[in-house]
């Protein structure tokens, strides 16, 4: 069953056709990668999925409901969490508070005037946050300001924040961009573990073929705003159209 259905999505920026007739279907519980050269429209597509951009035409359905015209926080409450290219975390807050916030968001919804409750008294939520941090091996860093973490730890924290909302679809935007090899491999292992352990679908936008081929079960190749092919990793590897898109016709 497909959890995310993108149908005939078009998006123009002035004279540039950023997305042209994009059709995409992400199967539930799969790891689906979207790859493509620079300027292929990967980020535009992602921004459409999370509600930051509204496409000119077409539809995007998540679990039978349209996401178009909804605000980012509403789409998130539907069950889509996003990991950014550069980790977006609450730098001034402690590591634990970073995870507490999505736990509250999951329980209380988009807004609640809980000004007379005390964070420390919310036993269940505190336990939930600590369990989440234990899962990503950050229990020893609970009270550190998030800003002081290393790049790799920030990424892990961001993933932990997204997971503590128990999303149904996790979107990752180049999760290993700018990382050292060791950190990249750690992130791959973490994502694999998450996918095995949890009832979750992962859609990943990536540049790094190593990451794509070690994680994805389906791959969609975008070029100039249009999907070229969608297939399993093994078939994509030798596909002539993909080589053409990445290396140019002359080769």
């Amino acid at each position: 069953m497909s959890i995310l259905e993108v149908k005939n999505v078009n998006k123009r920026f002035g004279g540039l056709q950023a997305l042209g007739d994009v059709n995409l279907s992400v199967q539930e519980h799969s790891v689906h990668a979207i790859i493509g050269p620079n300027g292929a429209g990967k980020s535009t597509l992602l921004n459409v999925l999370v509600g930051k951009l509204i496409p000119d035409t077409g539809s995007v359905m998540f679990d039978g409901q349209s996401v178009l015209g909804r605000k980012p926080h509403e789409i998130n409450q539907m069950g889509i969490s996003r990991v950014f290219q550069t980790p977006e975390i609450f730098g001034d807050l402690t590591v634990k508070e970073n995870v507490l916030i999505p736990c509250f968001a999951k329980r209380d919804g988009a807004f609640r005037m809980h000004a007379f409750e005390t964070v420390a008294n919310e036993k269940a939520i505190n336990e939930q946050a600590e369990a989440m941090l234990e899962d990503v091996n950050m229990l020893d860093k609970l009270d550190m300001p998030a800003e002081s973490l290393s790049r790799g730890d920030k990424r892990r924290l961001e993933i932990a924040m997204c997971l503590s909302q128990q999303p149904r679809l996790l979107l990752l935007d180049e999760p290993t961009a700018g990382m050292a090899r060791a950190d990249t491999n750690n992130t791959i292992d973490l994502l694999k573990e998450i996918h095995e352990k949890r009832d979750i679908t992962i859609a990943i936008i990536e540049h790094d073929m190593h990451v794509v081929f070690s994680l994805a079960q389906r791959i969609t190749v975008l070029a100039q705003g249009t999907p070229l092919v969608e297939d399993t990793p093994d078939n994509i590897k030798g596909h002539p159209k993909v080589r053409e898109a990445y290396l140019g016709e002359a080769h």
């Binding site: 977006e88 975390i89 807050l93 968001a105 000004a115 005390t118 964070v119």
Partner: peptide
């Protein structure tokens, strides 16, 4: 009480990263 409440924590989160708060399913405006 406000400083120690979840509400106060959300307010501090607004100061440090509104984007993340939006993508964490929270409506910052209210």
């Amino acid at each position: 009480r406000i400083f120690r409440s979840p509400f106060g924590m959300m307010l501090r989160a607004i100061k440090t990263n509104q984007t993340r708060l939006n993508y964490t399913g929270l409506n910052t405006r209210p």
